[in-house]
Amino acid sequence: MTPRPRALCLVVPVFNEAELLMRTLPQIFACAEQAAPGATVHLVAVDDGSTDASARCLQELQGHYPQLRVLGFTRNFGKEAAIQAGLEYAHAHTGAEVFVVVDADLQHPPVLIGPMLERWRQGALVVEAVKRARGDESRLRRGLARTFYRLFSRLSGLQMDGATDFKLLDRRVVGEVLTLAERTRFFRGIVSWLGYPASRIDFDVPARDAGSSGWGLRALFRYAWRNLTAFSSAPLQLVTLAGVLGLSVGVLLAAKALLDKLSGHALSGFSTVILLQVIFGSLVLLSLGLIGSYIARIYDEIKRRPHYILRPDPPRALSSDGSTDRP
């Protein structure tokens, strides 16, 4: 069995969580310290361009927790960018052997950090917390999430049912995650794609103490489509399939029209022609839109823009004892 870690780092994305932070971050700290007695517990909180008082709350908490480091974005770059920034900074500056990505709202129960560490000590390089029940989400959102993960798993060949960002990663796994250069990030999919030995822990999502999720249905649809096209080219094959089906229908109709003409039963009028034009015209436009989605992914990749921009205040490195100093 692997010895207990000497240093553990928590990566916490934050977006408009001012109502919760003063209560939740101390709880996350306490659970991590209890789970790893004797270890130095670091926490890297990434403020993803919050428009409320989240940044001020994090600054206040820094006065009570010297091992807390706060990174702030110039605007909202998204949760994927926040996870990327937190892992990059934590991997470079903390020297931690184990990293845990956890949400700030306690819907990722921090009490699971202890069992996750035990699985890591038993040899699992990745420990994933998997949703058993999705809490107070509406039936529509639960159904859409279930459909997305089943479709994603089928198209990508990766097991993603119930997947979350709540994960424990060994240091070498984080190093591999950071070497992947794609601009369109999907943390859950990337970790699964790496194929490291993983263990899964089921949990029920608790209700939020305050506030509401920042993920609307429109944002979730956009997020789902972006990740599907980033991890699978299968949707492109639908264009080929549509072409084959269209050709088959065309051949059958042409054969029927020829037989009707030869037998003297051909009907006058253009209803069939107009209907076919509408059907195939729509298929062409749909196919162009699908191809355009992939071209947009290529366009984003070749621009090579950074995943995020940090606010001007320079980050302070975390020393081994949890104190902060300038790099």
Score class of each variant (00 low, 15 high):
V126Y: 09
C57D: 11
A35I: 08
R23D: 14
L25G: 01
Y89F: 15
S54H: 02
F77A: 07
D103E: 04
Y65H: 14
T74K: 09
V126E: 10
L71P: 08
L25Q: 02
T94Q: 11
P110C: 07
D105I: 04
V98S: 03
M116D: 02
L58P: 05
L71I: 00
T40I: 12
N76W: 06
H42I: 04
L20T: 12
L21P: 03
A45S: 03
R121V: 08
P109Y: 03
A30W: 08
T94Y: 07
R75Q: 14
M22K: 12
F15D: 08
G78M: 10
L10A: 07
F29S: 05
T24Y: 05
H93E: 06
G114C: 15
E19Q: 00
A32Y: 01
G49K: 02
V126C: 09
F73D: 09
Q62T: 13
D105N: 05
Q62E: 13
V126T: 10
G78H: 02
E88T: 05
A32M: 07
A104K: 09
L25E: 01
V46H: 06
K79A: 06
P26H: 08
A32G: 09
V46L: 06
E17M: 15
W120L: 14
V46Q: 08
E60F: 09
A55E: 13
G63L: 13
V46A: 02
G49W: 04
H93K: 13
D105W: 07
L25K: 03
H93F: 03
A82Y: 08
Q67F: 04
G38E: 08
V127I: 08
A81W: 01
S54A: 03
W120D: 10
Q27T: 12
G114P: 13
E17D: 15
Q122W: 12
Q62C: 15
A81R: 03
P109Q: 10
F77S: 01
L71K: 01
A96N: 10
A30V: 05
D48K: 02
A96D: 06
R69H: 03
D47W: 05
R75H: 14
F99L: 02
G78Q: 12
V127D: 07
G114H: 14
K79S: 06
P26N: 04
L43Q: 08
